[in-house]
Structures are given as structure tokens and as C-alpha cells.
Amino acid sequence: MDHLDELENKSIYIIREAFHDFKDMALLWSIGKDSTTLLWLCMKAFFGKLPFPAVHIDTTFKFPEMYEFRDKYAKEFNLNLIVGKNEEALKKGVNYQDTDTFECTHLLKTEALKQTIAKHKFKALLVGIRRDEHGIRAKERYFSPRNKDFKWNYKDQPAELWDQYKSKAEEDVHLRVHPLLHWTEQDIWEYTKRENIPVNKLYFAKDGKRFRSLGCMPITKPIKSEADTIDKVIEEIKNTKEAERAGRLQDKEQANTMEKLRSLGYM
């Protein structure tokens, strides 16, 4: 069993545990490379037929290439796709130009997710976050409860050992399940290559630039790069000194922004 096999089998085990424990669940599919890898692992876990919906939280400010990718593969994988939007905020005209990044991210992503969970009564969500993305995500559990206000009680997280996880949720609590927690960015790309998982073209360099992490258009910046193939992307990541989410403006602005966003329910 090689390294990628080990990552894959552990993730599949976690996905199956989650589905056993929480039938009312969904995959949170942001259309990026991580959640697409997670979708692939779900396809493996359930032999090609996802027994739960894929949820896309749509701020309406994503790249056109992301919507294209979503619609193409939702069809190809035969997904039950749920698109969740904060219609009320969008009607009021909330956008990244007139609203500050923190507030806009909170309203269009976190609040939209809250509404979607409430509407469909999901008890668990599969989310493709990884420990190496951000120091605060490194503190996560595989099965991480959120209370009805969506708060992450990071001061008192459940114990996890020997592949035993929190398997029941109290009323008004939902579980965030993180099957990719132990993967690195490089692992994702190496696995994507091995498995031939579809990749959004925004990740490959064009005119000396590429996106290393995808989000909302106004707050996601490309990096300088000549990596226009998957092999070159892997090589670039091996040698970079830059952080993966350096192009994601919502993480920064002020010290500990990510912690504040996450404690309010951000992914």
C-alpha cells in the first residue's frame, strides 16, 4: 500500500462511517480541486452512485469556468445537485465592492450554507478542508460538531482516536466531516494525476498566471506561474515558499480573520 492508497482508504473509511451514522448528509462541493477530489472518493466509496446530494453554495460571484465545470460534471457524475444561495442578501445587492470582504463572505457563504442546511435538514456535511491549508484548519477533527448558531467550539473538541469518531449529534447540532484532513496540497495533485480526476482549467497557467486556490472572483487572485500541466503544477508546489491560500483575500485583512470566520461557521 503506497502513500496515496493509504490516504484514499482512510478517507473512504471516514466517508462510509459518516453515511452510516448520518443518513441525512450532503457533500459540500465548492467546485475546487479539493472538494472535487472528495467527490471522486465518494464515488469510490459508493461504487459510482452518490447516495446523497452535492451542495454548491453559490455566491453568484464565482468564475464562469467554475459554473461550466459544475454543470458539466454534475451531469456526468449524475449528481443530485443542490445550489444554495442567500437570496435575501443578493436581492439587497450585497457584493464584494460595496460590502467588506468579511461581511460579504459571511453573508453569501456562511449564511447561505446555514439556510441550505435548515431547508434540507442535513445532519452532516462532507467538507474538503485540509490541515496544511491554514493553521486554524490544522486544529480540526475529522468529525466536528457545530451547534445551532453554527459555532465551532474549538476550545472543547471531541476526542478522536483509533478511527473512532463522534457518531451521534444532539438535536440542533450538525457534524462537519473532513475526510481530506490528512491530505496535503501536493497529495491532492498527485492523486488527481493518478486517478485522472477532472481539473478546472483555471488551475493551469495561461499568460504566465494560474489560480492555485479558487473562490469568488473579486477576492481571488492568480499567482505568477508557467505551470500549464499537472506535472508542472506538482513540481511548482514542491518548490514554492508561498502559502496556498495567499490569493484568497478573505483569510487576511486583519490578524486571526480565519479564526473569526470559522468560529462563525465558515468552512
Binding site: 474549538y154 473538541q157 486571526n256 479564526e259
Partner: peptide, 16 residues
């Protein structure tokens, strides 16, 4: 990484 960890100079949760 947690504010409280930094303010009090202690590690509260495990990290990797």
C-alpha cells in the same frame, strides 16, 4: 493559532 492560545501562551488543541 487560536487567539486564546496566543494571548495565554499555551497550546489548547492538538495540531499538525
Amino acid at each position: 493559532y487560536l487567539t486564546e492560545e496566543r494571548e495565554k501562551n499555551i497550546t489548547i488543541d492538538t495540531t499538525q
